[in-house]
Design a protein around this nucleic acid. Structure first.
Length: 552
RNA sequence: GGUCUGUUGGUGAAGCGGUUAACACAUUGCCCUCUCAAGGCAACAUUCACGGGUUCAAAUCCCGUACAGAUCACCA
């Protein structure tokens, strides 16, 4: 029996050849230097920060070169597929504005190089496998999992290289007739690639971030098609898909480095040119004293749910990711504060070659800067959108008090050096809750610093309210406060006070703290003048009364 | 065990044979100041994992060692 006959026996219904597909998916007509890249997650888990980094880099690479960014769903491992994972991928990409040019979702396909879901490409893979069998570069292997385990154990024990190669490839050289007999017999089998490599020979391949790397040739007969669902393995799908989809640059995790020799041989077997590779380093996490790969199970910040729930601005997250990915992004960002991130000239060479710790402090800092530069109304919109999804109570309050909320968020905002006190939307309410009357029914503790005499506080408040005129500009208001301060035995000049603190009941700081705390319960708030203006006389009196009632 | 990669401060890092070893985050201190936030200023690696070599000169080049990570599935 010839190879061709064996191939026909295994794939009787496959009539197309690699050449047919070659014609169906011609080279893309793009400008010189345009990069074709892909984000190809497998829905075996929810999208995590590493995926995010990969997606972002791909997007930037495509956008900045006038190329194409497509999304491919790598769902060949159906046993491990997680419900909702695909939906979440689309959600995240959409949420962060990383829109693929080509994709397939909910029955809709965009792009001419599909299908973009691997399980729908099974016929294509079969045509390529059939071809390989017919030229003698692939064969059915009937090794059972018990046999496989035995081989592995033996190899481990005798310190040999692990894998199916050389004499361990038991079915590599059986006759086609025997293979056919076993298949007709109903025996389970996988299709393995027939490697021609020599482990003692080296080849050099160039990774765009790590540089030239010398590696031994592959000599392992890896499975390219699984026995159960007849789907290809990752390695084979990668070669077929990225060739037919005309990918120019493959961005993938460092863990794939060691399969480069295999991919190299696979591409060569078809006579195809390898794409360029950008192997990105892992994102690590410091756990006590040890540094390890970030874990979806242990580290909440590993999964993309985290950032959305906390309410980080999307662009802040992207900047944080790019800061880790490319060492000169930060510099570019300070020089180009308003440019969209995808205009960043990403350089694979500038990627760190060692793993980086994902630094949440850094994210907070980037995020604070972003939020401080938003207009109050824009911030309000974002805050509202976030609250609607993640905090109903806050949503109701800020909807009801829209004007107050915007005015409050605007305090010390539209200035050259705006306040930077919110790193995400979920951190706003804990710092602003006192603006909402409804919240005052809950337990209140007043955080006074120095003056704690109830009657004294009452008279200070009374005096300040008597003098309060909402038409006063800040300077006028404050000079009135100072005047009262001095009249009541406090010192309005901090310098003078510090020289002889014993001569006064307290300083202007102690004096204003009284007003601040009675009105907000907190001794740490933004500008008092603005807060009083937003509250208005009526509410200030109410709050004084609440104080008198509750404070002992 | 084989194969590959890496190792500059608490973190991300710049550096590519001669620099006071950038910058950013964090931390600490001071200043400013009605609190807070912000801002300003300053401190924080006598040294680039270790050992050897090349050189007038090494974080930078070479060799070795140690340590760390990745990978060696019909998972991606």
């Amino acid at each position: 029996m010839t190879n061709k006959e064996l191939a026909d026996l295994i794939f009787p219904n496959i009539t197309k050849t690699p050449e047919d597909y070659e014609a169906m998916y011609p080279k893309r007509d793009l400008m010189e230097g345009a990069k074709v890249v892909r984000f190809a997650p497998s829905p075996t888990g929810f999208m995590h920060i590493g995926n995010m980094m990969s997606a972002t880099i791909n997007y930037v690479l495509a956008k900045s070169s006038g190329g194409v960014f497509f999304l491919r769903n790598e769902d060949t491992d159906q046993a491990r597929s997680v419900e909702g994972a695909v939906e979440f991928i689309h959600h995240v990409l959409n949420y962060y504005g990383i829109y693929p040019d080509e994709y397939e979702y909910n029955g809709k396909t965009v792009g001419n190089y599909g299908p973009y879901i691997q399980s729908e490409r099974i016929e294509i893979y079969h045509a390529f496998i059939k071809y390989l069998i017919s030229i003698g570069r692939a064969y059915p292997c009937f090794l059972t999992s018990d046999e496989l385990n035995e081989i592995r154990e033996y190899q481990a024990k005798s310190k040999k290289r692990i894998g199916i190669y050389g004499r361990y490839a038991k079915f590599r050289d059986i006759s086609n007739d025997e293979a056919a007999r076993r298949i007709k017999n109903g025996e389970k089998y996988v299709i393995r690639f027939r490697s021609k490599g020599d482990f003692n020979r080296k080849f050099i391949f160039e990774d765009l971030t790590k540089g030239k790397i010398e590696m031994p040739e592959n000599d392992i007969d890896v499975p390219i098609m699984k026995s159960e669902n007849l789907l290809p393995t990752y390695h084979f799908a990668h070669v077929v898909d990225d060739h037919l989809m005309r990918t120019t640059h493959v961005v993938r995790g460092e863990e794939w480095m060691s399969s480069v020799p295999l991919h190299y041989e696979l591409f060569n077997a078809f006579g195809y040119k390898m794409p360029k590779y950008i192997h990105t380093s892992l994102i690590l996490k410091k756990d006590g004293d040890t540094i390890r790969k970030i874990s979806k199970r242990k580290d909440p910040e590993a999964l993309m749910f985290y950032y959305e729930e906390k309410g980080y601005p999307t662009l802040a997250v992207i900047d944080a990711v790019l800061t880790i990915a490319n060492s000169n992004f930060e510099e570019w960002r300070t020089n180009n504060p308003d440019k969209p991130f995808y205009e960043f000239p990403f350089s694979p060479k500038k990627m760190s070659s060692s793993g980086a710790l994902f630094d949440l402090d850094k994210l907070d800092n980037i995020s604070k800067n972003y939020i401080s530069k938003m207009s109050a109304s824009k911030l309000y919109e974002e805050y509202l959108t976030w609250a609607k999804k993640y905090d109903e109570h806050v949503y109701e309050l800020i909807s009801k008090y829209k004007e107050d909320t915007i005015n409050f968020l605007n305090i010390e905002r539209e200035t050259k050096k705006p306040r930077k006190d919110y790193e995400n939307y979920s951190s706003i309410f804990p710092k602003t809750w006192y603006m909402y009357d409804e919240e005052w029914n809950k337990t209140i503790s007043y955080e006074f610093t120095k003056i704690i005499n109830k009657d004294e506080i009452k008279s200070i408040m009374q005096a300040c309210l008597d003098q309060y005129d909402s038409n006063d500009v800040e300077e006028v208001w404050f000079s009135k406060i100072k005047e009262l301060c001095d009249q009541m035995g406090y010192q309005s000049n901090m310098k003078v006070y510090k020289e002889n603190p014993d001569q006064y009941k307290g300083s202007i700081a102690d004096f204003t703290t009284v007003i601040r705390v009675v009105l907000t319960t907190s001794n740490m708030t933004p500008n008092l003048y603005d807060i009083m203006k937003i509250l208005g006389r009526k509410r200030m009196i109410e709050r004084l009364n609440i104080f008198i009632e509750k404070y002992n």
